[in-house]
Simulated assay, not measured.
Amino acid sequence: MDKDLLKQLTLWHNKNQHDKIINKIMEIPEADKDYDLVCLLARALNNQENYKEAIKYFLSVQKQGQHDPLWHFRLGYAYYYLKQYKEAIATFEQVVALDPEDAHGRRFLEMSRNAAGRAGNEMVHIASVEQDEGLLEANEEINPFGLVSHNNGSISMILGVGEYKHEIFQTRSQEGFEGNGYDWGSLAAVFLKERMPHLVHIVRFDPEADMFAAYSDDREAILSFATAFKGACEDDFLIKDLFSRAELD
């Protein structure tokens, strides 16, 4: 893929200008759309909640994507939001099988299994994922955030951004805040600095456009942070006050 084109597509993605991505890639002749371009087109369709169309494009490059955990993740993401949980489970299990350290994949696998259970769907297991029983109770307490343990001993706190507390970020939309993963990271950084300064160098952040993620090698630290941050999010006065000092990434 042309480097200048990739740079432009990335810029539009970070600004949530997914319609521009779709229009640009659709202008390119089919013969010139390589695997990466098709995947970026499908990702943009995902971000516009056009999941059925996204799946069509993902499956058009299935052969190239079968060993790519990111391809499986984005396909599973579309299945999940279409409430096709059996397909989502199978796909996210492939993500974890290909990349056991993929915290986002593990979190969405757990979410898909839980959703399938609530819907009464029969679940399909392709690859096993060890469940940290100690985190299950905590996950109930901090929902819609989730905690995922990793083989190296670290634990991640993850949130698929979008609906939760979106109104908070809208109060500063004129400044460029959109409620994406980076905005959540900025808010969490203020909370950590002001409310839990003893954990500033222990809990770290690794957000993406559509996902907020915090992680730590210290189990008790991340559990403490997760519980306290969720509590702050449920206190409208407090979270608005903290957000007033967040800096746009």
Score class of each variant (00 low, 15 high):
5 L>P: 03
6 L>M: 15
12 W>H: 15
15 K>W: 11
22 I>K: 11
24 K>R: 00
26 M>C: 11
33 K>E: 01
35 Y>P: 05
36 D>C: 01
37 L>M: 03
40 L>P: 01
44 A>W: 05
46 N>R: 06
47 N>F: 12
47 N>P: 08
47 N>H: 07
48 Q>D: 09
51 Y>W: 00
58 F>P: 07
65 G>W: 09
66 Q>E: 15
68 D>T: 08
70 L>N: 10
73 F>T: 06
80 Y>C: 06
82 L>T: 10
83 K>L: 03
84 Q>D: 02
91 T>I: 11
94 Q>T: 15
95 V>A: 05
95 V>E: 14
98 L>D: 14
102 D>T: 13
102 D>P: 12
104 H>G: 13
104 H>F: 11
105 G>T: 15
105 G>Q: 00
107 R>F: 11
110 E>H: 08
113 R>N: 15
113 R>F: 06
120 G>R: 07
120 G>H: 05
121 N>R: 05
122 E>I: 04
125 H>F: 06
125 H>E: 06
130 E>W: 13
131 Q>H: 00
132 D>M: 12
138 A>Q: 12
139 N>Q: 04
141 E>N: 07
143 N>I: 15
147 L>I: 14
150 H>A: 02
150 H>D: 02
152 N>F: 14
153 G>N: 13
154 S>Q: 01
156 S>Y: 01
156 S>V: 14
159 L>F: 00
161 V>F: 09
162 G>F: 02
165 K>D: 01
167 E>A: 15
172 R>Q: 13
174 Q>Y: 02
175 E>A: 06
175 E>D: 12
175 E>I: 07
182 Y>D: 12
183 D>Y: 09
187 L>A: 08
194 E>N: 11
194 E>L: 09
197 P>E: 12
200 V>S: 10
202 I>D: 03
203 V>Q: 08
208 E>V: 07
211 M>N: 10
212 F>W: 11
215 Y>S: 08
217 D>E: 10
219 R>F: 09
220 E>Y: 09
230 K>R: 15
233 C>G: 00
234 E>M: 08
240 K>M: 01
242 L>I: 10
244 S>W: 13
244 S>I: 10
246 A>R: 10
247 E>L: 08
